[in-house]
């Protein structure tokens, strides 16, 4: 167990390195001299040279890379557009995105597990068909369109929830649903498959043969086994949610990292793009690693040694 944890944590190093290098290089994939882009149109030669020095673009690549890394954490790295420290700008937005992602995870896991278990227990009944139809449609619906529909129903027609912004508890309901519903569809499908698999196992037959009531067999004996893979998928949903957050934040005007990045794309603020993507990717990697470790804790078969 301990060696597994250490191995998994060590694996983070090359991934973090690779991810940060890739993000750093984004600037260098851009056709044209970066400094010229930063300086904007109509800049003089001196302007460009000045920027090269300020941004350290005249230094060797590895020095620039190290400066880039240091710049993120010290807050020295500034937005080209606003001139503000990116660290300062991104921190509250990061909180916003995480808030949104967590609310969605809660929706997607409770709804998804509930539907999946019901579908498996009442396999081939109308409950199953309905749940799986929901799951398939949910997995095929673009997040942003779902957002538009929810606004249409709850904000435009029913007028019970705000269509955007970030004020109070009410304002997070629609964004969280927008992001959580499609993801709950995936969780439901997997829970159903996993639950059906668990229910067909020999140990379920054993429990039934020993007079354990069916309800207890389903919710204790089968569910605990079935949830192990589901936990992994819920963790992996986090990546989906970070992706979806970009769109949800745009639909609802939710101040998060995703919208920050998209705005930066339009203002050609490449440094913000780099840092924003890097931070999102790091979060994604950390969550995935935690999920792997959690899996090991949940499944006693992996808990050896």
């Amino acid at each position: 167990m301990r060696s597994f944890i250490i191995k998994r944590l060590l694996l983070l190093i090359p991934i973090f390195f690779g991810v940060s290098v890739l993000c750093f290089l984004i600037l260098y994939f851009i056709p044209g001299v970066p400094a010229k882009i930063i300086a904007g149109e109509g800049a003089t030669k001196e302007d460009i040279e000045n920027i090269r020095v300020v941004f350290g673009l005249d230094k060797p690549l590895y020095v620039q890379y190290l400066r880039f890394l240091r710049g993120i954490f010290t807050g020295e790295l500034r937005s080209i557009k606003s001139g503000e420290s990116i660290l300062k700008e991104i921190a509250p937005r990061y909180v916003g995105t995480i808030q949104l992602a967590f609310s969605s995870i809660i929706i997607s896991s409770t709804l998804g597990i509930l539907l999946g278990v019901l579908a498996a227990v009442y396999k081939n009944s109308w409950i199953d068909n309905l749940a799986m139809a929901f799951a398939l449609i949910g997995a095929s619906t673009p997040v942003f369109w779902l957002g538009l529909l929810l606004i249409l129903v709850f904000a435009v027609y029913l007028k019970v929830l705000p269509s955007g912004g970030r004020e109070g508890f009410k304002s997070i309901i629609l964004p969280a649903l927008t992001l959580g519903l499609p993801s709950s569809a995936i969780v439901a499908r997997l829970t159903r498959a996993s639950m059906l698999d668990a229910l067909s196992q020999d140990y379920i037959r054993t429990a039934l043969a020993y007079g354990i009531p069916k309800r207890k067999v389903i919710f204790k004996y089968a569910l605990k086994n079935a949830l192990i893979p589901v936990v992994t998928v819920i963790g992996l949903q986090f990546g989906f949610l970070l992706s979806g957050a970009v769109l949800t934040e745009s639909v609802f005007g939710w101040p998060g990292v995703g919208r920050y990045i998209v705005d930066a794309v339009f203002s050609r603020d490449y440094v913000v793009i780099e840092v924003g993507i890097l931070i999102t990717a790091m979060t994604f990697v950390l969550v995935n690693t935690s999920v792997d470790l959690l899996y090991a804790v949940l499944d006693p078969r992996l808990r050896k040694g």
Partner: peptide, 25 residues
């Protein structure tokens, strides 16, 4: 009533000892 027979009056031993016990308990 069967719940009181199973596991109490009549019990079963299965073929596959590897899979007949629940792995997470």
């Amino acid at each position: 009533e069967m719940l009181k027979i199973r596991g109490k009056e009549i019990t079963m031993i299965f073929q596959e000892p590897m899979t007949s016990l629940n792995p997470v308990f």
